[in-house]
């Protein structure tokens, strides 16, 4: 297997999580469409060329006629992603078109991104956590830590402009406690680590 293929699939796995876990603020006045739009845009950190980085159509000969379809979808997505400056919000049109292209890519490569039973349980446990509004999306990784303890790393992508700098550590500590309890209640034997990351930086790296 070409070394670019696993890297591309890893990028897509992360992007799929960021896409699926996007959050909009719950306290917005429903009539204010512009605010909703802004929230969707700030959460769309999957809309970056990095999501499809290392894609090489030649890595997928087994797809047959879908190989060209995958290439088209990736190119369409990459074109839109490159049009959006990393430090600016995407337009509604860009978001809509990127979403269509991204979902086309996901549909084709879905068999390469299996979700294991334990991952589903972990996701269920994570989904119920009431994250603060400044968390725009999240992702997680399973693995073993340095002590070989099974662990889950929860990456919370924060909107730096609205995240309260003075209380970040105590918020993270509180979320870690909640996460630990949820994992325990779900009988998931994994040590929780919460990492706060900049949503803006994810798009620019």
């Amino acid at each position: 297997m070409n070394m670019s293929k696993p890297e591309f699939l890893l990028n897509m796995r992360v992007a799929r999580s960021l896409f699926g876990n996007q959050r909009v603020r719950a306290d917005l006045p429903t009539a204010n469409i512009a605010d909703f739009s802004k929230d969707f845009s700030r959460a769309a950190i999957w809309l970056t060329p990095k999501s499809v980085e290392h894609f090489n159509a030649a890595d997928f000969p087994e797809l047959g006629e879908k190989q060209a379809e995958l290439q088209d979808a990736v190119l369409a997505f990459r074109t839109i992603a490159k049009e959006v400056p990393p430090d600016e919000a995407a337009t509604n049109e860009q978001l809509g078109n990127a979403k269509v292209a991204f979902e086309r890519v996901l549909k084709i490569i879905e068999p390469y991104l299996p979700t294991h039973e334990e991952s589903k349980d972990v996701e269920t446990a994570l989904t119920g956590i009431p994250f603060p509004d400044w968390v725009v999306t999240w992702d997680y990784e399973l693995g073993n830590d340095e002590d070989e303890t099974p662990a889950v790393w929860l990456n919370l992508y924060a909107d730096e402009d609205t995240a309260p700098k003075g209380t970040l550590a105590s918020t993270a500590a509180g979320l870690t406690r909640q996460l630990r309890k949820r994992l325990t209640d779900a009988r998931i034997n994994r040590w929780p680590y919460v990492r706060l990351r900049s949503a803006q930086k994810h798009k620019t790296l």
Partner: peptide
Amino acid sequence: ASEFVTLQDSRLSADYDTAITWDHFEAEA
């Protein structure tokens, strides 16, 4: 105790894992 475990994990990544990129926001937290 919880912060110690988290800090040790972060310390090991910061010192040895060059595949991870750190930004100011994360380091500050």
